[in-house]
Each structure stands twice: as C-alpha cells, then as structure tokens.
Amino acid sequence: MYKILKKEILNKDIDLMVVHAPLVAKNALPGHFIILRVDDMGERIPLTIVEIDGENVSIIYQKLGYSTTLLGKLNVGDEIADFVGPLGKAAHIRDVKSVLGIAGGVGAAPLLPQLREYSRLGVKVDLVIGARNKEYLILVDKYKKYCDNIYIATDDGSMGTKGFVTDVLTELYKEKKYDHTIAIGPLVMMKYVVLLNKKYNLSTDVSLNPIMIDGTGMCGNCRVTIDGKTFFACIDGPDFPGEGVNFDELIARQDYYKEEEHICNLRLVKK
C-alpha cells in the first residue's frame, strides 16, 4: 500500500497528490509515468510523475471519470492499493537553444518536468498554456520559475487570449522563432498543434495517452500508429515526435469504452 502524504486541490477538477513510493522515486526521470489502482477492484490507470522528492512522488490528476474521481475521494493518510513505476521511456531531451512548451488542460502537469529539465540545461523556455477558463489554469506559478514568457489562452477569455492554444500560436509565430516545441494536452489539441507547426517547419514532441493496462509491453492496448508503424506507448513512449502520429485512430481507441465508462460513473453517483 502506498500512503498519501499530501493533497492539494488545484481547482474544481484537478488535484495534486504526494505519495510515498520509494521504488518509484529511486530511478524516475522527466517523462516517466506510474500506473496505479485505487483499490482492489480498481482499474489500472496511468499518470505522469510530476515531481520527485526523496522517496515521494507527486502526481496531478483530472477527475474525468470513475477511477480518477475515486482517487480524488482519498485524503492524506489514506493508502492507494497499487502504484508502480517509473514506466515508459524518459523524455528525449533535445540539443536545442530554445523550446516552446504547449500545454492544454491537465497536460500542464506532464509538461512541467520536461520544461524544468530544459530550463536546468540553460535552454530558453517559453510556454503557451490553455484551459477552459481562469479557474482551470494550473501550475502557472510553478512554470514562472522555468519560463521566460508565458502566454495564456482560455476558451471564454476570462484570462489571456480568448480561444485555443493554436490561436495564440498563430499570433506568436509572427514574431518569434523556436528550435523545437513540446505539446501535451488532449489528443485533439496535440493533433492541431502538430498540423500548425508543420506549416512552420517546427518539430513537435507529443506525449500520448492511450488506454493502458500493464504498462510493461505485455497487453498491446496502448499501441499507436506512427508513420504506418506500430509502437507501444508504454515501452516505446509515451513521448513521440508528433509528425507521423495517427491521431484519429488513437482518438477512436481512447473512446472505445465510452459506454462502459458511463456505466461506471453511474456507480459513483450511487456511492
């Protein structure tokens, strides 16, 4: 069992948790993730490792459906049944002089350790961060430590530009140049960012979030098609160059259990 040492409510939908997990903390690097099971009948769900502090691991999760909502019901002192990692390949940190991070929603969580690493290496780092509205922007204060400029987009215009991150990018590219970008957020966002960046000949690393089970290459649930070839996101990724990713196929795979997720959510209402 893995004890919850700290819990911070970042907004209505998103929490941060610090979990005691020495064997996960031992070798974790930016880009690695964990898989957890809230309880004995729980699903195995993947979450990015946001920060490591000694034997403790921070995760940030959005309460989207059954498992993340159930996780959100736990409090400091409670225990998580299973917590395994670090999984995946560490982020491929490229040899560049400037990088632009692009975060959508809870994607701001997995992006943080990567930008922190670039900043540590002396790379110039900017950030475009998007959310539904002001309340849903997360981690902006933490990012301030690592980023020279932060550009904000909200769907309703309650802060920063009204619109999507791609709207901000279109304006930004008129005046600034970057060697490389990293986009993490919903699949649709990553899809359109990659399309836009291609027009500017700008490379985009993305972090893919297919449904997973084991996270060790055993089941194949997490497979994605990139340039016509199959990759397993849990052992070959989750970070990949975004250019060749078949996002539409991946979106369909992620939606495959929509009806069942709905049934599970009804149970939450009853609980």
Binding site: M41, G42, R44, I213, I263, C264, R267
Partner: peptide, 19 residues
C-alpha cells in the same frame, strides 16, 4: 488480462470493462 487479472467479466463491480 482484462478478464483474468482485471476481472472484467464482473464489470462494473470490477472497474475494468471488456467489449
């Protein structure tokens, strides 16, 4: 794995589905 390890035949009591 969905059925044997994750007990999806007992869905939704077990949270992992299979379709």
């Amino acid at each position: 794995t969905r059925v044997n390890l994750m007990k999806s035949h007992k869905f939704p009591e077990s949270a992992t589905p299979v379709r």
